[in-house]
Nucleic acid binder design. Sequence first.
DNA 1: TTGTAGGCGTTATCAG
DNA 2: CTGATAACGCCTACAA
Lengths: 340, 340
Amino acid sequence: MQTNINDVAQQANVSIATVSRTFRHPELVAKKTRDKVLAVAEELNFSISRSATIFQTGQSFRIALLLNDQFASWFNSRIFEGLDSVFHPAGYDLSVYPIASQNDRRSFFSTLPVRRNADAVIVPSFNIDLGEAERLRSTGIPLIGINALPADAFTLSIAIDDKQAMRLVVRHLISLGHRRITFFRVKHDSDSSLKFSASQRAQGFLDECRDNGIAPLVLDVVEDDSRVDQALTQLLTLPDMPTAICCQQDSLAVPLIFKLQQYGYEVPRDISVTGFDDTYYARQIGLTTVRQQPRTMGAIAAKRIISLLEGNDVETKHEVLPVQLMFRTTTAPARRLADD
Amino acid sequence: MQTNINDVAQQANVSIATVSRTFRHPELVAKKTRDKVLAVAEELNFSISRSATIFQTGQSFRIALLLNDQFASWFNSRIFEGLDSVFHPAGYDLSVYPIASQNDRRSFFSTLPVRRNADAVIVPSFNIDLGEAERLRSTGIPLIGINALPADAFTLSIAIDDKQAMRLVVRHLISLGHRRITFFRVKHDSDSSLKFSASQRAQGFLDECRDNGIAPLVLDVVEDDSRVDQALTQLLTLPDMPTAICCQQDSLAVPLIFKLQQYGYEVPRDISVTGFDDTYYARQIGLTTVRQQPRTMGAIAAKRIISLLEGNDVETKHEVLPVQLMFRTTTAPARRLADD
DNA sequence: TTGTAGGCGTTATCAG
DNA sequence: CTGATAACGCCTACAA
């Protein structure tokens, strides 16, 4: 049997109230009493039961995190890490709800399993339905978006501007003289509206091309282990090889470069390639890409949420973090036509 | 104010016991009553409070996961994913305790923050002190090891045989005629005994070399963003370039291959390279490596733990999962001396 | 099949 | 500074 607060109180010749205070508000307890209690607690292997505390508090100290995707993806695992780095020390636990399809999502928002069972719901990276958001928020649970839209569906939101970031990339390529640029988009089997960033990036590409009078070419690959081969096949059967390739994410760009080189295309001499995310591999191979820092986003979000839950006014409700174009060695000036 | 079980009971003209049963043991409630209760619950936006249930049960429904490292590492995030895929649906939450140093570890095991606050403690991938393990287990909390030693410190354990797996790799290289083989080990800033698998792999390399009368060469790189450059520098300043390179993990091998090629070394024509893990990038570039499946390990561990917590006898206490050598395109027969 | 009542371990309030 | 006591919301014997 576990020892409880009663055992300690008895053994230490104090009331349970004093034991509780010793842990909760030590400053209200005389040092002598406190030491006695702590000694007994130590001896009896006692510590306050979080379940009981949580129960009596009425707060759940649980944060629901909806994940649309492989949990272990680059983005998601870093978001989690950032969130947990703040939440865990503050006594909150994260509870991961897998949302793989629109159906999952609908079911989540109609049964609201988090009702009374989570202090907040965090939605990274997918579009949300205004009605659903409203339904959740009407239960008093704040809804927080990370790279998600529309902003006004959320109590708080934090994001990067994927569209703008991709425009940066395209502008970079254009300034290097590229005019034949191909964009590779990764199609997910699951519902695409669960992948908010993906569509934003493609849109940014299209917009920037249009503004510069360039005919954009967007190619799709399905998100499976053959995605790079799919990309390569499409590239090599193009009537005109592009001079630059924009990939939706590093995880496509890195192996693509590898394979292009195997097929005799030198990067960036023959063709420039860009990524998005700034992953470890991007840094290692010198990929030109966009740096975003999901871990930081998670940590900031967590801090805001805690502040909100503690009843403070949150100054910034909707924040957009800056990103950085990392100009490295996989992009170079387009070869002049005369060189061909 | 949240509605509670009382409100529902009143509104539905039944006792709270009936409401509770409607959710807990629906089969014990007359269909008519049940429907009535559910209707009222729906109307009042009620659902059972997990906090209260957990509290009253006495179980915490929380599983502590000690992580030694970047949470978002390939291995750890997949372990988490596997664990959560089983735990979450079963009503358990994972609570991540960061253990970055021996000090953190000591402090964890001396203050035992999980005492009464977790149903089990999971330790992936680092060595554990028998005394500490005993201390924890004496509180009645099971301790589970994933790729951790020594086995008898744990209530349950599940692992791959890193040492044996690396021997497989070396044997493969030897069978291809390689005799000059270099092993690259990744040194972690944090205490090395927190990295159990790493030392096992290096040991496997040494053992297999010795058994084949080969003089082993182990080189270290520090785990920062320059690790690949460190490896390359060491390689290129060697009196004798090896014919094969064994990397402790894919994340070193993949960019190393990339850079070797930039320096004019063709893989595998000039030099063979192997990895360990079988990550996405390994598959994409055709790296010869060892496949391990941490997600599966996590899922199996979770199932066992739940079974244990439910009081069932667990048949297999210590399980070693098989791994698979993935022979791909980065290894080839060693060039005969005459060719040089 | 349903209701009654006790108890889970803590915290907060209020009195001393 | 400390003690007594009433919640907190649910579950489960046990009784009806």
